[in-house]
Design a protein around this nucleic acid. Structure first.
Length: 219
DNA sequence: GCGACAG
DNA sequence: ATCTTGTCGC
């Protein structure tokens, strides 16, 4: 017996998945790339969402936008976007200019209904997005090379839904998938460009750092 | 029925 | 996600 909330959420995913653009349709000139993340407070529903905008050339943070609020949806694998999207959208609203590309801390098409957080955020904002998760949700993949840049297709039900990509030699891979308006090939290139030193993209590292600092600071 | 299961 | 110190390894 799945409740109405779950039922409605899954139906919305089935409907919105039809609007996802899986080929390159990003701005001609990508000058800014942003990372988004959310942190939660223990023993409460308080949360903080942040968007960290980086300059593509220097990979330096040029702006941080945030939002403090309450979690309104539980964490359910497969329905993750319904928990984080509202707060993330509120944080994005604080930005005077939209970033050219968004990197999400979660899946894009590598989702049971092919509509993870990256796809959801992309279609509702119209911004090009990439999903880059630390762990896998669905799919299988063959062993990949140990060198940075090595990758293997993430396959689910016979379809390539993303890639297990090694961003740092000797470290565990990240899971890259199409979000919206970015092909898997281009998404892979961007993730490698955003991981010159660490396993995770500088964008998600900056957003993660911002969100944790804001959670501890007073409001 | 038994696991698996983004953050 | 969050609770958490030291510690093993390069």
């Amino acid at each position: 017996m799945i409740d109405d909330q779950t039922q409605a959420a899954e139906e919305l995913q089935q409907r919105l998945r039809q609007t996802v653009i899986v080929h390159d349709e990003l701005p001609t000139e990508i000058r800014t790339v942003a990372g988004v993340d959310v942190a939660y407070e223990q023993n409460s529903n308080r949360l903080v969402a942040a968007v960290a905008v980086l300059d593509v050339a220097s990979l330096q943070v040029i702006r941080i936008a945030s939002y403090h609020g309450e979690a309104t949806f539980p964490y359910i694998p497969g329905l993750f976007s319904f928990r984080e999207l509202p707060a993330v959208l509120s944080a994005l609203d604080q930005l005077p200019v939209k970033p050219d590309l968004l990197v999400c801390d979660g899946q894009g098409l590598a989702h049971p209904r092919r509509f993870g957080l990256a796809c959801h955020l992309g279609v509702v904002t119209g911004i090009a997005t990439i999903g880059c998760a630390k762990t896998r949700l669905i799919g299988e993949y063959e062993p990949l090379g140990a060198d940075r840049g090595a990758y293997q297709s993430l396959v689910d039900e016979g379809a390539v839904v993303g890639r297990a990509l090694r961003t740092q030699t000797g470290k565990n891979p990240v899971f890259v998938s199409v979000g919206h308006k970015v092909s898997l090939e281009t998404a892979t290139d961007w993730i490698l460009r955003l991981t010159p030193t660490y396993r995770l993209p500088e964008t998600t590292r900056a957003a993660d750092q911002a969100v944790k600092a804001l959670l501890r600071a007073p409001r």
